[in-house]
């Protein structure tokens, strides 16, 4: 095992695609050797800017990613794309369809796309995405683009780890309360109103502008609202130049260290949570004690809170 993992780590650091692909599978499955792999590559991690794109299904994330990555690759940047789609809580399976809109990128030199399912079957975050970022950075990319469906807290958490976050919206998906509810207003550096040729685009853009105007804690960092029509290529250049300007700001304002620390904390938390699930929660499911707790709760003898405390403290 040790030799194989060492070889894999060396392959990744040397920039071999196949090794990176295998390594990503290993950290996703958290199979034997994954920690060893992470330990080996960690000193070789070369930080690079991370862009995050998030938004509901169908708002145009992948089309926008396709454009951005194409531009970056034309400049001979090496780009890693992590496209996250949700795992079905019922079957554990997933349809990962982001490649459909990234036609122009497949098979091109310097572009590595990995589709990932959110997994995390027992709730909570899967550390795999953080680990994937590390593997990409050891492999040596100039930039990472993370694309997630912006639904639920874990997705929001993940994308907020990017240096720059673009929240993609489109008109006609509900009123202003929906927009606030989703918790997206807090994480965006730029808000994109895509499909701006549809009715309601002006209203949505105006609404965002007014909701965001209260949040300029730092005068360099008032979130920007951009209207675009990604499928027709309209205003995509503007988005690109915003993302680059924001990157400059991150690097020169001391925000970089703050982001770095946030990422590290998140990675540690995710790994702790995963360990807790593997070592504690999973072995507990279906045991006598588990069943005893369930039936006691169902009979209204004791509350779930009581049992959680009892199980954790291990007292009889």
């Amino acid at each position: 095992m040790g030799e194989k993992i060492k070889e894999l780590a060396q392959g990744i650091v040397k920039g071999e695609e196949r090794a990176l692909a295998r390594g990503l599978t290993l950290v996703e499955n958290r199979k034997e050797g994954y920690q060893e792999l992470l330990d080996l590559i960690y000193p070789e991690v070369k930080p690079c800017p991370i862009w995050g794109l998030t938004g509901a299904p169908g708002v145009g994330k992948s089309t926008i990613t396709n454009f951005l990555v194409d531009k970056l690759a034309q400049r001979r940047e090496k780009v890693g794309v992590i496209a996250v789609d949700p795992t079905s809580p019922f079957s554990g399976g997933a349809i990962l369809g982001d490649r459909v809109r990234m036609m122009d990128l497949a098979g091109r030199e310097g572009i590595f796309i990995r589709s990932m399912a959110s997994r995390g079957a027992l709730g909570g975050l899967s550390p795999a995405i953080m680990d994937a970022v590390s593997l990409f950075q050891a492999f040596g990319v100039d930039r990472i683009v993370v694309e997630t469906v912006g639904v639920g807290q874990s997705e929001t958490d993940i994308v907020s780890l990017a240096d720059t976050v673009a929240v993609i919206l489109m008109p006609g998906t509900g009123d202003d309360v929906q927009t606030i509810k989703a918790g997206l207003l807090e994480i965006g550096d730029v808000f994109v109103v895509n499909k701006a040729d549809l009715e309601g685009a002006e209203t949505l853009a105006g609404l965002l502008q007014s909701m965001l105007s209260g949040k300029n804690d730092d005068e360099n960092r008032v979130p920007v609202v951009l209207k675009l029509i990604a499928s027709q290529g309209k205003n995509l250049e503007e988005l690109m130049s915003f993302l680059e300007k924001h990157q400059e700001y991150i690097e020169t304002s001391g925000q970089k260290e703050r982001k770095e620390r946030m990422r590290t904390e998140m990675a540690l938390k995710m790994h702790l949570q995963a360990r807790y699930q593997d070592l504690f929660l999973k072995p507990l499911l279906g045991t006598e004690k588990w069943e005893q707790a369930i039936s006691s709760i169902n009979k209204r003898e004791k509350s779930p809170a009581f049992w959680a405390k009892k199980i954790i403290s291990g007292s009889e």
Binding site: T87, S88, S91, G92, G93, A94, I95, L96, G97, R99, V100, R101, M103, A106, S115, A117
Partner: peptide, 13 residues
């Protein structure tokens, strides 16, 4: 069908 059987399916279009 493969997703419903618990697999991760990358669909390329």
């Amino acid at each position: 069908a493969l997703r419903d059987a618990g697999m991760e399916v990358i669909y390329t279009g």
